[in-house]
């Protein structure tokens, strides 16, 4: 029987939903080269704004806490990357390598990925995912996983298009109300 170890808050969170994309992509950004790099403190405002577009909540304390845990934490297998177009932050991905949880071999977990709605269809999410997977590979793992709501067909389709398949694990839950 597999060992079930409760994950910490980060890996329990479901992968973030991407808000619906607008009808057209801003043409200026479409011509701007993308680059992927580790998050910097000055990027947080853009990340918080992007998250608020999806969730409707500005969670500054939460994002500051996440930044402290994930920025400059490559040695511990934590990754918080941003995609930039010119000087603008247009997307981010967060993930980490977790060892032996749920009875599994060490593997990479992507628990948040988002791209600004007006910067979709430029391949930013693909580049973010590829970048974090590359870091997972360097850490010696050969599998990447994520978890998201099955109603979230937009991001499910994205992960599927990247080659992700249903994993051998089944998420379970129950109500704790009496």
């Amino acid at each position: 029987m597999s060992k079930t170890t409760p994950p910490d808050a980060a890996s329990k969170r479901r992968t973030k939903a991407m808000a619906p994309a607008p009808a057209a992509v801003a043409p200026v950004r479409a011509r701007t080269a993308l680059s992927i790099r580790a998050v910097r403190h000055e990027d947080l405002d853009a990340v918080i704004e992007m998250d608020a577009m999806v969730t409707g909540i500005h969670k500054r304390d939460y994002w500051n806490s996440l930044y402290r845990r994930y920025a400059d934490a490559v040695a511990t297998g934590h990754h918080f990357l941003v995609a930039t177009a010119g000087s603008e932050v247009i997307g981010f991905v967060i993930g980490e390598v977790r060892d032996w949880e749920f009875g599994s071999q060490p593997c990479g977990w992507v628990f948040a990925i988002d791209v600004r709605p007006d910067a979709r269809l430029m391949g930013a999410a693909t580049q973010l995912l590829q970048a974090i997977c590359q870091r997972f590979r360097r850490a010696g793992v050969s599998k990447v996983r994520t978890l998201l709501a099955r109603e979230n067909t937009l991001i499910l389709s994205f992960f599927r298009s990247q080659g992700m398949m249903i994993s051998p694990f089944i998420p379970l839950e129950m109500d704790l109300e009496q």
Binding site: T153, S157, F159, R160, S161
Partner: peptide, 16 residues
């Protein structure tokens, strides 16, 4: 689960 899978897999993904 079947419905979620079928709704998230495009023809392009199938071709891949």
């Amino acid at each position: 689960i079947a419905k979620a899978s079928m709704s998230s897999i495009t023809l392009e993904t199938m071709l891949r």
